[in-house]
């Protein structure tokens, strides 16, 4: 517990120092561009949720389709083709070749 306390104190100390002086330093952070990244973040979250409840194959197909659309792929043929083919290949590889159980 000793170390634990030390770590907590250092964290708090640094936080205090950070809060005091960041006025000029925090500016070097880049600007958030949330309208582009937020959909991806939410979509990945939903994907994991679906992964947990409905298994690997179907959520992955839907996820890939949506994600590629978000990244800017607009041709339907490649959207459908890749997002269906790839999960099937991955599923086969994981379960048969690598011996990993996927739900």
């Amino acid at each position: 517990m000793v170390l634990f306390a030390i770590m907590f104190i250092t964290a708090v100390c640094i936080l205090i120092v950070e809060v005091r002086k960041p006025a000029d330093e925090s500016k070097n952070g880049k600007k958030f561009n949330l309208c582009r990244s937020l959909p991806t973040i939410i979509w990945v979250g939903l994907y994991i949720l679906a992964f947990q409840n409905f298994g690997f194959l179907i959520p992955t197909i839907i996820f890939l389709m949506g994600e590629m659309y978000l990244f800017g792929e607009k041709r339907w043929i490649s959207l459908l083709g890749i997002s269906i083919l790839l999960p099937v290949v991955l599923y086969y590889l994981f379960t048969k070749v690598f011996g990993i159980y996927l739900p």
């Binding site: 990945v44 996820f63 890939l64 790839l86």
Partner: peptide, 24 residues
Amino acid sequence: PPKILFPVVIVMCVVGSYAVNNSP
């Protein structure tokens, strides 16, 4: 094209982190 590559990498990330311990 990154628009195909990156979604695939995300899937690999998620599946990979699941498969280490089979834990959601």
